[in-house]
Design a protein around this nucleic acid. Structure first.
Lengths: 354, 354
DNA sequence: GTGAAAGCGCTAACAA
DNA sequence: TTGTTAGCGCTTTCAC
């Protein structure tokens, strides 16, 4: 049973100490207190120390809201991710957070759950409370993007749009590495299991894959779209296998892990019967079964770059970060015969957990 | 090459439209505009529609900062997690976000990266910009907790403190289920691989495990502390094996997955040689190798409950959510002989990927 | 170097 | 129903 000091049961909510309180207590004007606290070298050292001592004694904390009104700056930055449950964002968040903190800013996060509507809503609501925002993997149509960009500085991650600064990972090169890897393994055909149609990187990845496949003389099929979650990997796997391709490339690792799970369930061996590749190298890609061959990108570095660009007001910046293929156990030489599903479309061809 | 409408290359940052602009344009007083927009039934329908039309035409967006100053309310809520890279928080975030949105609030997230100092800093900075905050798995000492609680409404998740509302998952019952499961499998001894000493749930879990072990006549050892990350699971595994226990219970799944990885590397079979159990049932626990036996908790429901309590000002609320053991493949009957490391302490006893 | 005073954009009495 | 006005807590000229 909680016990507490007042009848409410909660720590007593005390009235906030304001600049006026400090001023009165210190016997100076509020403007002097303001200066002593924010522009210490514009007051005499005697006054400065006295005021600071009083402020400390009273446990004064500036009201960020009130500070922000006249100055127009909150020293808060927002990072809106399209899906907080995608581990790919971990590095991004950590990198952005570190860089923001280093510059004296507080980073707040928002999750738009894969919905453009939620994203726009969030940007609207949080936008007027921060000094700038980074939109990661934004699904916003260009006009909506322009609407939020018209109010605050904005930087895009893995998305490009006219007039917007952006930081992107090199999808084209990552895709090239996938195709060359598969070509070297003798794969005659690949299928791309596409992601959300409104995701910029889906188009990028699909097009790059198609282009490099053509160059390598590999048959290319684009399937989907599929929601980029583990659960939707099941449907993606089925469609991929039905396509007869010997290698399946998923829009991202979440989808790829779901594909792996479904294939295991169907008794289709990876990589013996079919190879599987993803993008992002997320948490889990190294310990799923089999460990996934995937395209790694420096997401923490991306997070830092995003904040740099945002604070540097380099509104025309376009940073491209290198990617590299991490080969694990989900890719191998092409099978002699393309894989096919068992004749019982909905039942397992092997026990779920062998 | 980005092309844009003005020389800056960015979407032109337009001066924000204020209430005054709308008022002037509509030929009414600012207070009328304010009412027409926020208290629509306190103006005549003619005025309301006229004002709203003008506001829409001018693309007016209220300045949340300015709104917040007189009213003292920002309609924003903060959720501070101790580690955004722990997938256990996914459900929590989604649940809290949904409930906050339903109540007309915007949820902002903060990550304190396992550091009490960062947490306190974040709470301080963001605290004055939100109407309340939930501290998830807070590592803050009680006095620091009381300091932030003295300013804003606060609700705790998986942490309890005098005078604070809290939502916790039933560690005691989850721990009981683990011990009974292991007892049924004939395990004579278990080792708890402890988490951060400043984590409330570490103490809870450890104590519950010890109590239930005693009741079941099982030898109990507490080891650690270990940082709750996959990487630190390696050290934890070594210490766990050295203890001679036949079952290893990790503070959480992150640590457990790291333990699994290390044991595979050492050539110690799970669950044949040793059983492993975690807490949280995170993303990855179902597809790691072997799939992990772990304690599931309703984190999405927890997220919703936290917001309910926060907005309901039920400052004395103490919600306990049920947990249940999800048995997968990392637990089995106790081995005839306790496991031991290979005689080459630092080398693999088997190939890394058999 | 310090103080007085005018806002920042909005809300909420209070008047009319 | 609508307008006038006084702040919310702070920053920032502008005098002194």
């Amino acid at each position: 049973m909680p016990h507490s000091v007042d009848s409410s049961g909660a720590p007593s909510r005390t009235e906030a100490v304001t600049l006026h309180d400090v001023a009165r207590e210190a016997g100076v004007a509020v403007s002097t207190v303001s200066r002593a606290l924010s522009n210490p070298d514009r007051v005499s050292s005697r006054t400065r120390e006295h005021v600071q001592a009083v402020a400390r004694r009273l446990d004064y904390r500036p009201n960020r809201i009130a500070q922000a009104l006249p100055s127009g700056r909150t020293r808060m930055l927002a990072l809106l991710v399209s899906d907080i449950t995608n581990p790919h964002n971990f590095g991004l968040i950590r990198g952005a957070e570190a860089q923001a903190r280093a510059a004296g800013y507080t980073l707040v996060l928002g999750d738009s759950q894969g919905s453009a509507e939620l994203e726009s809503d969030h940007a609207d609501r949080i936008g007027s409370a921060v000094d700038g925002l980074v939109l990661a993997s934004s699904r916003l149509p260009e006009d909506a993007l322009r609407a939020v960009g018209g109010r605050r500085p904005v930087v895009l991650y893995n998305r490009e749009a006219d007039g917007f600064a952006s930081v992107v990972t090199d999808s084209d090169d990552g895709s090239r590495q996938i195709v060359e890897h598969l070509a070297a393994l003798g794969h005659p055909s690949i299928a791309y299991l596409g992601g959300p149609p409104d995701a910029w990187s889906d188009a990028e990845r699909g097009q790059a894959l198609e282009r490099h496949s053509a160059a390598a003389g590999i048959a290319f099929t684009r399937l989907g779209p599929f929601s980029p979650t583990v659960d939707h990997g099941e449907a993606a796997a089925d469609v991929g296998i039905a396509s007869g391709a010997t290698a399946l490339i998923a829009f991202n690792d979440l989808l790829a892990i779901g594909v792996l799970r479904r294939l295991e369930h169907l008794g289709i061996a990876v990589p013996a019967d079919v190879s599987v590749v993803g993008y992002d190298d997320i948490f889990g890609s190294d310990f799923c079964h089999p460990p996934l061959t995937t395209v790694t990108s420096p997401s923490e570095q991306a997070g830092r770059a995003l904040i740099d660009v945002l604070l540097g007001s380099r509104h025309d910046a376009r940073v491209v970060l290198p990617t590299s293929l991490r080969v694990r156990d989900s890719t191998a030489p092409a099978p002699a015969h393309p894989p096919s599903r068992s004749h019982r479309p909905d039942g397992p061809a092997a026990s779920r957990r062998p």
